[in-house]
């Protein structure tokens, strides 16, 4: 295996918000690195500031301190170069499936005809051909999230930031979309940072899992996930799966065994 190249470094990032009882630190001196073509899951107790990290990387929030380095170059944020996907599909209800997919290319000023052609290609690949003119509210949750995924991928972002993208879906749809995501990431050779509260999902999809401690968020431990599997479903059958699962539960102080 070639040595891993570091793509993104988040260093000593801190952020606090003004609250009723004075400021509270959400992030304090947070540091982690993301490799080229990495698939990193970030797990941690709820409310530990996972979304805040994403908002800082995406340029929606300014950190109080710290630096972000992208391929050796210090940057403010990755605004315009990330593909941000959230728990809500955030499809624009007044736009058709086609219109939603085109949103990013439009803001970028890509030629309409060229963009539409590209969009049709993507829609076909993700099994949504024929739904170009449908409005989001006529689609199922899984289809909507697939449209959101296409909208993200078509921009050819440097890094995908996925903030619990499947947590609002039922288990079957989630398994299916995990597979779609993993295939797409391999096809387009994308780097992914996935925030999830689902340990199972984190182990099944990732190459590495970053465990955060509670507020203020700090990296508690990073686990390399060494599972060679073709899909997230076969990954769950891997012999090492349950070991990783239990280890991560322990890191998050979730009890898996009954204690007397």
């Amino acid at each position: 295996m070639p040595p891993k190249q570091i793509q993104l470094t988040v260093q000593n990032i801190s952020k606090s918000f003004a609250g009723k009882g004075g400021d509270f630190n959400v992030l304090d001196d947070l540091t982690f690195t993301i490799n080229e073509s990495d698939f990193v899951s970030i797990i941690g107790p709820s409310g530990c500031g996972k979304t805040t990290i994403f908002n800082i990387i995406a340029g929606l929030l300014e950190p109080d301190g710290g630096t972000i380095t992208y391929r050796g170059e210090e940057i403010e944020s990755l605004r315009g170069r990330v593909g941000y996907m959230m728990q809500k599909d955030l499809l624009f209800p007044w736009r058709t499936v086609m219109g939603n997919v085109l949103l990013g290319l439009e803001t970028r000023g890509v030629d309409q005809k060229e963009a539409e052609e590209k969009a049709r290609e993507y829609l076909k690949q993700f099994g949504l051909a024929g739904f170009e003119n449908a409005y989001p509210k006529t689609l199922s949750g899984g289809m909507r999230q697939r449209v959101a995924l296409i909208r993200t991928l078509i921009m050819d972002p440097d890094i995908l930031l996925l903030d619990e993208p499947f947590s609002a879906l039922d288990y079957q749809t989630r398994l299916y979309l995990e597979g779609v995501l993993k295939d797409a990431v391999q096809t387009y050779n994308k780097t992914v940072i996935l925030v999830t509260h689902d340990i199972d999902e984190a182990v099944a999809l990732s190459k590495r899992v970053v465990v955060l401690s509670g507020r203020p968020a700090r990296v508690k431990v990073v686990h390399e996930i060494d599972i060679e599997a073709t899909s997230p479903i076969t990954a769950r059958n891997d012999v090492k799966f349950s070991t990783y699962f239990k280890t991560l539960c322990a890191e998050l102080d979730i009890q898996t065994e009954k204690t007397s």
Binding site: A58, L60, R79, G80, R81, Y84, L90
Partner: peptide, 19 residues
């Protein structure tokens, strides 16, 4: 959130306003 999404895509204020 829709506005944030557009900003993360690199949209400027006018684009967020109109779209």
């Amino acid at each position: 959130d829709l506005q944030s999404l557009m900003i993360s895509m690199g949209a400027d204020k006018h684009q967020v306003f109109w779209k």
